[in-house]
Simulated scan of single mutants.
Amino acid sequence: MSLRSDEQTLALKLFTVLARTHNTLMEIDRRDIRRYGLNQTEFAVLELLYHKGAHPLQQIGEKILITSGSITYVINKLEQKGLLERKPCEEDRRVIYAALTEEGRSLIDAIFPRHAQTLTQALRGLTPEEMRLAIELVKKIGLYAQQNS
C-alpha cells in the first residue's frame, strides 16, 4: 500500500469516526434538551442570551449558525412561551433585541447546569488533558478544511 493510500485510508477513517461521534453526541444533546420542552435551536438561543445578554435578532442567527428566517420562527416560539421578549434599540429603532424574560432566566438557570452535567458525563471517556488535546486537534481540522475548501 502506498503512502498516499495510507493517508486516504486514515482520512476516511477519521471522517467516519468524527461523523459517528458527532451524531451520538447530538442525539444525547437532543434527548436531554427535549426533557425541558425545548428543541436544540430554542435551547441555543436561550443559552446565548443567558451567557451573553440581550442580542440583536440579526446577530443571533450568526452566533448559533441558523438562517434569519429560522431565527424569526424560533424567536416567535420562545416569545409565545414567555421565555424571551423583543426590545427595540433606543439608538436605532431598526434594531430589535431579544432578551430573556424572568421566566426564561429562571428556566435556563434551572436547566443549564443539568444539561452541562449530561454533556460532561457523555465526554467522561477522556481525561481533561485529552479533552484539551481533542479541542486543539478538532479546531485545527476545521480551520484547515475551511481555508482549503
Rank of each mutant, 00 (worst) to 15 (best):
residue 105 R to L: 04
residue 138 V to D: 10
residue 10 L to T: 13
residue 8 Q to I: 14
residue 77 K to Y: 02
residue 34 R to C: 00
residue 37 G to D: 01
residue 38 L to A: 05
residue 3 L to T: 03
residue 120 T to C: 03
residue 69 G to K: 12
residue 145 A to C: 08
residue 109 D to C: 01
residue 14 L to D: 13
residue 1 M to Y: 04
residue 44 A to S: 15
residue 88 P to M: 01
residue 27 E to K: 13
residue 32 D to A: 10
residue 30 R to G: 00
residue 102 E to L: 10
residue 38 L to K: 01
residue 53 G to H: 03
residue 22 H to I: 07
residue 106 S to I: 07
residue 21 T to D: 10
residue 102 E to W: 02
residue 126 L to M: 15
residue 33 I to S: 06
residue 101 T to Q: 11
residue 122 A to C: 03
residue 119 L to P: 03
residue 129 E to T: 11
residue 136 E to A: 08
residue 20 R to E: 15
residue 132 R to K: 15
residue 16 T to Y: 08
residue 106 S to D: 13
residue 145 A to P: 03
residue 117 Q to V: 05
residue 102 E to V: 14
residue 62 E to I: 02
residue 125 G to E: 12
residue 59 Q to D: 14
residue 51 H to W: 04
residue 141 I to L: 10
residue 119 L to H: 00
residue 85 E to N: 09
residue 142 G to L: 09
residue 66 I to T: 12
residue 28 I to R: 09
residue 94 R to H: 15
residue 7 E to A: 13
residue 79 E to F: 00
residue 118 T to D: 01
residue 147 Q to H: 08
residue 147 Q to M: 12
residue 43 F to Y: 15
residue 43 F to G: 02
residue 74 V to S: 06
residue 44 A to L: 08
residue 10 L to W: 10
residue 116 A to D: 05
residue 134 A to P: 04
residue 85 E to C: 04
residue 139 K to P: 01
residue 108 I to H: 02
residue 109 D to R: 00
residue 29 D to F: 03
residue 54 A to Y: 00
residue 45 V to C: 09
residue 58 Q to R: 07
residue 120 T to L: 03
residue 17 V to S: 07
residue 89 C to R: 15
residue 48 L to T: 04
residue 101 T to S: 06
residue 52 K to N: 14
residue 134 A to L: 15
residue 144 Y to N: 11
residue 82 G to S: 10
residue 92 D to P: 12
residue 73 Y to A: 14
residue 32 D to Y: 00
residue 5 S to N: 12
residue 79 E to D: 09
residue 26 M to Y: 08
residue 16 T to I: 08
residue 11 A to H: 05
residue 46 L to D: 07
residue 137 L to N: 05
residue 121 Q to A: 11
residue 72 T to E: 12
residue 78 L to H: 02
residue 15 F to V: 03
residue 2 S to C: 06
residue 138 V to F: 06
residue 45 V to D: 07
residue 86 R to Y: 09
residue 72 T to Y: 09
residue 145 A to G: 06
residue 111 I to C: 02
residue 141 I to M: 07
residue 25 L to Y: 09
residue 68 S to I: 11
residue 107 L to R: 03
residue 22 H to M: 12
residue 4 R to Q: 10
residue 121 Q to E: 14
residue 46 L to A: 01
residue 110 A to I: 00
residue 106 S to A: 15
residue 110 A to G: 03
residue 20 R to K: 13
residue 107 L to S: 01
residue 125 G to A: 10
residue 132 R to M: 14
residue 124 R to N: 15
residue 116 A to V: 08
residue 127 T to G: 01
residue 105 R to N: 05
residue 69 G to Q: 08
residue 147 Q to G: 12
residue 145 A to V: 14
residue 93 R to P: 04
residue 127 T to F: 01
residue 119 L to Q: 14
residue 124 R to D: 15
residue 130 E to T: 09
residue 20 R to M: 11
residue 62 E to P: 00
residue 26 M to G: 00
